[in-house]
Design a protein around this nucleic acid. Structure first.
Lengths: 349, 349
DNA sequence: GGAGCGATTGGAAGCGGTTCCAATCCATTC
DNA sequence: GAATGGATTGGAACCGCTTCCAATCGCTCC
């Protein structure tokens, strides 16, 4: 049961190597009888074609890369990326592509480029996390390697992307808080270098404006998408801005950290302070109290990104697309259900 | 700046293709002057060798696969796997290997095997999650594809593995509880089909026995490593076994779910009930209260697994090894600090 | 029955490397 | 000065598959 190659298959099936190749690739011009003979031999001997040879001759690898940041504190510290990978993987599996996984960081640019992009050829690449985009989009464009971004990147509108509608998400989160009667609403967002964070902040502002609530820039806190950041920021805000009765956190991880800090400070959620998150990660149901949040279709994001990329590779899609997936508000308990006006004090000085 | 191949390099450097290949692969028998000329041409034209051709001729791909379960509720729902992948990736990067990522599940075995193992050739595979091992170890053994397991698998002691010392971890967790004065200590563990879960349970039992505390099998609850499982199990236990004053949870995710259930039921942690987790995932600092847990070196696990695999591939290591990494007890607040005997009642009936 | 034609088939030339082997160098050694 | 032998070099086969092209086959149609 040792390995057998295309020539052997051809011989056993009494046809030429060309015919075997044609049935392997579903090409036309193969008679039914020949096809059947070949298929039988393939099954009988468990023939598996050598992918290196295939790639070499066909000049493509049927393999895409997914690149994310190696910063363990950021995207990685929660279940987000794995679910995204799963989406990418399953779309690729369906289309018979495979996925190479890579992490990069600012420090290793040189090493990375050399190895990842040079040595190994990929048919296309999915860029996950904006810092990754900034690092590599240019290079990919230059080498004409098809790419798709997860999340929109301001500087690279010429590359197709998939994202959740961040603006709409935060808009509805904040609107929810306003409807609950909150007026002094804080925002805890990610780095404003990221388009995503800008959009989430913009949604927050717009929701307030539309509701006739004045926007107080002092209520906006910028940090990272981590529990630690959410925790630390909240701790410092509680004392300085006790009049804030609700916080919009731009990620569930931040929200979780915030919850922890609030608890330490003796603030009850949602009675004293309401908290809303973003993402609906799997733990959001089990925070104390369960987190009201914005659900984004993470798996779908991955799946769709892979589909776009493969279409790009095959020339099925040529024009660039910036797809926005719809987020949903998931109401649990961290914002409570009370309504009517609610003031613990005026705006911050 | 278009792509250039080995022949062109040879021509521009006034040497033969063989010489170029030798410098590329650091083979001996190349004069310094020839080497330098080749290196210069390579740099000047930014030559990058075609990996498909290399693989075809050299009969290896310098690519390994990492296989995990596609069950989104299990291993995936936390940051565990991403950190593990990072470890694998970075070791591979250092050794100039690349990593293909795959998910499988029981349902897709057929499809999977066909595509993953047949079409694409991998130099080796890392199996992550025991259900994956059960599904594929046999096949990999049969095909003589080098493999390394993350976690020990009872049925496959002939395959090298890396794991944390689960027994020692839970032993120290439970010992910690005992020292704190607890006598009625419950355990919430994963499926006993998994060696890992068996070991964690065994550590729990041994710690009790060694401390002279009778083991009550009624206090052992078996579930999955998820927040949901921890939550649901705890909810049902609280009423039935109110005399239990401390719970050993075999994962932080379970512990988080348990915390949530305890809170809902009005139990205070650690005052009424102590909880200890396992893993020390990044969120463990931010649960309410912060979780006392067993830290395991996840990144190192990945890193070490990759190293073992590559050594196996290159024949540097031939004998199988079952490596146990050391876990550490991380004391935070979920177990409190009280001491002395503590009984809220006798053992369960 | 033979010309004409589309469907099938087989042959052969790559794809871009690795590696074995024979040939060539060049410095020693006798 | 020629023989010796190790270091270097180039030639060529080969890895297994795709694909172009020419040859063949089997019909239909006049």
């Amino acid at each position: 049961m040792s390995k057998i190659n295309i020539d052997q298959v051809a011989r056993y099936a009494f046809v030429s190597r060309s015919v075997v190749s044609r049935v392997l690739n579903n090409h036309p011009h193969v008679s039914d009888v020949a096809r059947e003979r070949v298929l039988n031999v393939i099954k009988k001997y468990n023939y598996q074609r050598n992918s290196a040879a295939r790639s070499l001759a066909a000049k493509n690898t049927r393999e895409i890369g997914i690149l994310s940041t190696r910063n363990p504190n950021d995207v990685m510290s929660n279940g987000f990326s794995t679910l995204l990978y799963l989406g990418v993987f399953e779309e690729c599996l369906a289309q018979r592509y495979s996925v190479r996984q890579m992490f990069i960081s600012t420090e290793m640019k040189e090493e990375f480029q050399k190895f990842i992009l040079n040595e190994h050829t990929l048919d296309g690449v999915i860029l996950f996390a904006e810092e990754v985009t900034d690092l590599l989009a240019e290079e990919l464009l230059f080498r004409e390697i098809p790419a798709v971004l997860i999340g929109h990147a301001p500087g690279f509108s010429s590359i197709s992307s998939v994202d959740v509608d961040n603006f709409a998400g935060s808009y509805s989160a904040v609107t929810h808080l306003v409807r609950l009667g909150h007026r002094n609403i804080g925002a805890m967002v990610g780095s404003q270098l990221l388009q995503e964070s800008q959009d989430r902040l913009a949604g927050y502002r717009k929701a307030l404006v539309d509701a006739g609530v004045p926007v107080n820039e002092a209520y906006v806190s910028v940090g990272g998408y981590t529990q630690k950041s959410g925790h630390d920021k909240m701790l410092s805000r509680i004392k300085r801005q006790p009049e804030v009765t609700a916080w919009f956190c731009a990620s569930d991880t931040m929200a979780m950290g915030a919850l922890s800090a609030l608890h330490k400070s003796g603030q009850r959620v949602p009675d004293d302070v309401a908290v809303v998150g973003f993402d609906d990660l799997s733990f959001a149901r089990y925070t104390i109290p369960p987190l009201t949040t914005i659900r984004q279709p993470i798996y779908q994001k991955g799946r769709y990104a892979a589909r776009m990329l493969i279409d790009l590779i095959n020339g099925k899609q040529t024009d660039i697309e910036h797809r926005n997936l719809k987020p949903d508000l998931v109401v649990r308990e961290s914002c409570g259900h009370h309504s009517g006006m609610r003031h613990k004090g005026g705006h911050a000085p």
